[in-house]
Every structure is written in C-alpha cells, then in structure tokens.
C-alpha cells in the first residue's frame, strides 16, 4: 500500500482535488440513480445506465491521464477512430468509396503518429492538407462521378472534426511540464474535458429549470436562450475561478477564454444536432448506454478542443 500512497502523493494537488471531486460527483449521481426512480417511477429510469456509462468514461479518462501521454494518445486515437466510423456509418457514402473510407481510417494512425513523435507541423499538415488532397484524388480515381462532390465533402468534414480537432486534446498532453508547473499537461487536458462536459450539463440544467424561449426549434427543440446563457455564465465563472490551478493563464486571458469556450461548446452541440436531423436519427449509435453514440458525447469537445488549444498557445504556451 505504501507505493500506492507515494504514487498518489506524487499527483499534482489540483488534479488530486479534481479527480476527488469527480469521484464525489459520480457517487452522488449513482445514489440519485438508485433513489430517484423509487419516488417517481419511470421518470428517472435512464439515469442508472447513464451513470454507469459515466463511471466507465471517467475511469478510462483518469486512467489514461495517470498513465501518461503514451496511453492518452492511444486512447484518443481509438476515440477518433470510433467517432469517424460512427459518422461514416450514418453519413451517405457510395459502394465505390470503401477503399477511400479504409484510407481515412488509416490516416487516423498517421495523424496520431505525428502526435506520438511530437511533431506539431506534421500534425498540422496531415489531415487538413495532404489527406484532404489524397482522399479527393483517390475518390476521383474510382471513376464514378455522380455524387462525387457531396461524398468527398462528407468524408473530409468527418476527418476534420473526428481526427484533426479531437487530436488537439492528445497533443496538449505533449506540453512540456516546465510550462505548466501547476498541474502538468494532464491538468490542462483534464480541465478542458471537465469544463466542456460541465458546460453541457449546466446548459441542460438551466434549460430544464428556466427554459422558455427556444433558440432553433427545427434543429434542437430542447435548446433555449435561458439554458444557453445560464450555462455560459456558470461555466465562464467556473473557468475563471479554476484556471489559475490548472493552466498558466493570467486573469484577463482566462476571462476571454471563459467567455468564449462555452459558446464554442454550444456550437459543437447544435452542429451535431443539425447533422442528426439531416440524417434522420436521434442518437448516432447505441455505443454508450444512456448517452447514445460517441458523437453525441464528443460533439462539444470537437469544437472546444482546437479553440482551447490555440488560445493557450497564443496566451501562455511557448511550445505551440
């Protein structure tokens, strides 16, 4: 047990408290998932699978963060693959495109390979430039022209959000520890994911309690102005209060990111809703019990990850 205590003591204090807080939230949620259905049968039935899935997701995330950048890069490579596969399963493709789709999956490996060898320039040009060009020419060589432009657009949109954008989360783990003395690179990543998921939940809660005016009823009927603004404010305040413990940001930059990041999360959410509406599905798959598909859970992060990354790079990190 001694080595375990030493190991835990070696984790930066903000992360210890962060993981502890998350654990407490999971315990409270799980107790509610057992108790609430007893008071109002039927209304809270999906809370139990939802909480069980949260345990698994938090366990994977914290486990990979503690193991270091190698484990985290592998985890996110797999997550990018799952997300891309889920997207390409639903989005229209043609019989001739199977080869190009397989190529797209292989490029997940190449993109994360750039993160593995810590080469930022390589990462920047892989998906948005060369995979972009190569996939276009490969699809042209299949010789089928009807639906060409629509299909290549569909494929490339998926590669950007699922592989390039999510890749930024994994690349943050390569931040040199000297630049982030507060909680290390793991602290930066934990803070991004925590704030993004907290923002989703805060908007949902505010909307549930005060929601009156719908933002865009034909895309996402549950989104209200009250929910969005209440959620933005709550998340923004949380971000500014916690930023000094997890990031090297000074006060005014943290106010700027705290004000903008929740809006980006909302944009990610509503963009995925528009895609789901177009494809005629409610959830993107049944992968995560109580939540839906991987894309349902990752939609906000696909938008917040690059923004958080670039804002940190601009205001605080020399590495990027």
């Amino acid at each position: 047990m001694n080595w375990l205590m030493n190991y835990l003591a070696g984790i930066p204090a903000p992360l210890q408290i962060g993981f502890g807080g998350l654990f407490a939230l999971l315990v409270i949620g799980s107790i509610l998932a057992v108790v609430l259905p007893k008071f109002k049968p039927g209304k809270w039935d999906d809370l139990k699978p939802r909480m069980q899935s949260w345990w698994v997701m938090c366990g994977l995330l914290i486990g990979a963060l503690l193991l270091g950048w190698q484990a985290f890069t592998i985890l996110f490579m797999y997550i990018s693959y799952i997300a891309l596969k889920e997207y390409l399963t639903l989005a229209p493709t043609r019989k001739e495109d199977r080869g190009v789709v397989l190529f797209a999956y292989l490029m997940v490996l190449v993109s994360y390979g750039a993160i593995w060898i810590d080469n930022y320039m390589f990462f920047l040009v892989t998906i948005p430039v060369y995979v972009f060009l190569a996939s276009a020419v490969m699809m042209a060589l299949t010789k089928r022209t009807d639906g060409y432009l629509a299909t290549i657009g569909i494929l490339q949109w998926g590669l950007i959000v699922c592989v390039f954008n999510l890749g930024h989360v994994a690349f943050l783990m390569r931040t040199p520890e000297a630049e982030v003395p507060m909680a290390g690179a793991a602290g930066l990543v934990f803070f991004l994911i925590f704030v993004t998921q907290f923002n989703d939940m805060a908007q949902y809660m505010w909307g549930k309690i005060f929601g009156r005016h719908k933002i865009s009823p034909n895309i996402s009927p549950n989104k209200t102005w009250e929910g969005a603004i209440g959620g933005f404010a709550t998340t923004g305040v949380l971000f500014v209060v916690l930023a000094p413990y997890f990031t090297p940001l000074t006060f005014w930059p943290s106010v700027w990111i705290g004000a903008t990041l929740p809006v980006l999360g909302f944009f990610g959410d509503i963009t995925m809703s528009a895609i789901k509406r177009d494809l005629g599905v409610k959830d993107t798959s049944r992968l995560i019990p109580g939540h839906g598909g991987a894309l349902d859970r990752l939609d906000s992060l696909m938008f917040t990850a690059p923004w958080y990354f670039h804002m940190l790079a601009y205001f605080a990190l020399d590495r990027f």
Binding site: K95, R98, G99
Partner: peptide
C-alpha cells in the same frame, strides 16, 4: 444491417462500419 457494406460478397477487403 451493414454487414454487406463491411465485406460484400466477392470482396476480400474488410472496411469497418458499424
């Protein structure tokens, strides 16, 4: 549903789709 897309008859190439 979808197995014919992952590996249709006559194809030796397995392409993952859900």
């Amino acid at each position: 549903q979808g197995a014919g897309r992952v590996m249709p008859r006559g194809s030796k190439l397995l392409v993952p789709f859900n």
